[in-house]
Design a protein around this nucleic acid. Structure first.
Lengths: 154, 154
DNA sequence: GGCCTGTAGTTCAAATTTGAACCTCGTGCC
DNA sequence: GGCACGAGGTTCAAATTTGAACTACAGGCC
């Protein structure tokens, strides 16, 4: 620690921009989803992941990996969604310990109703603010970053 | 809502990369700071902002704006830091309602001790993964995004 | 079979976050 | 002066998050 490589101006700008944008965008979407659909962003993401999975269901652990939350956090949110009737739990045939979360018809309906407003908010906050070139660069950069971090976690 | 403009492939990749990177980086830094310095990222940021401000102090509202948290959240964290002796509250001479948060000597010491490890973690998670060109583009893009969102909030 | 190690989910208490309600006090305006 | 309106912070209850146990089971190995 005797010789820390501090951030230069561009690096600092990138870092500050990243943190600020992450917080501001998260805040914005959280509010939009809560107001328009009564869902938190995490809950919305759970529905999205399930809707995209074969059979509309995923193992709890798979889901936790995709969502980047703790296992206990996922347990909590799935319970909430279950109470709301948007998701159901099924036990796994091949592994008694396993639990599948499955999106229900009502979950599909809620997701379909929420999606257009959510996409519009994502566009307004991030996508439509940038040029196609910038978007491609962003996808590439942040894809690399997240791939690395995911790999490092395993 | 009859005609939502869905995201194309690049846009979706940018969005997913953004969300994933934001969560993974936040998670990583949170853990690093907690383990190495006993601070949450929010608390660290409070110390950083105060250390950079003239007199080492800022009004609560100014601080909340820079940190992108709710006012009540800031009240809570400043109270925690005050208990730990890293920050002190002072009342504002010109406005009786106002409160200044001021970094203490111990706060400075804690910040100086935490900074090198934090910067190293930031480099490892984000900065050193990207090329200088990518960093410049990232700074530009996300700077625009956060400026817009900040403006929209006011 | 019996054991040992690891995995899947849940539970629990503690820490944090949030928004709304609530005082206290500045400011502009009549 | 006297008010209405709004800003600055805090408080409060409710919702959420987290990591550390903990339960129950799978798999490999002797």
């Amino acid at each position: 620690m005797d010789d820390p490589r501090w951030l230069d101006e561009t690096e600092m700008a990138a870092w500050r921009g990243f943190v600020a944008a992450a917080n501001l965008v998260a805040r914005r979407l959280e509010r939009q989803l809560k107001e328009d659909a009564g869902l938190s962003h995490t809950q919305y993401e759970i529905l999205v992941q399930l809707s995209a999975a074969p059979g509309g269901s995923l193992r709890m652990t798979d889901l936790a990996d995709r969502l980047i939350t703790s296992k206990s956090g996922l347990t909590y949110q799935v319970t909430q969604l279950e109470k709301a009737g948007l998701v159901a739990r099924r036990s796994c045939p091949s592994d008694v310990r396993g639990v599948f979360a499955e999106i229900t018809d009502q979950g599909w309906a809620t997701l379909r109703a929420a999606a257009p407003g959510h996409v519009a908010a994502v566009r307004e906050a991030l996508i439509d603010v940038l040029t196609p070139t910038q978007l491609a660069a962003l996808a590439d950069s942040l894809g690399t970053v997240s791939d690395r971090l995911r790999a490092a976690d395993s």
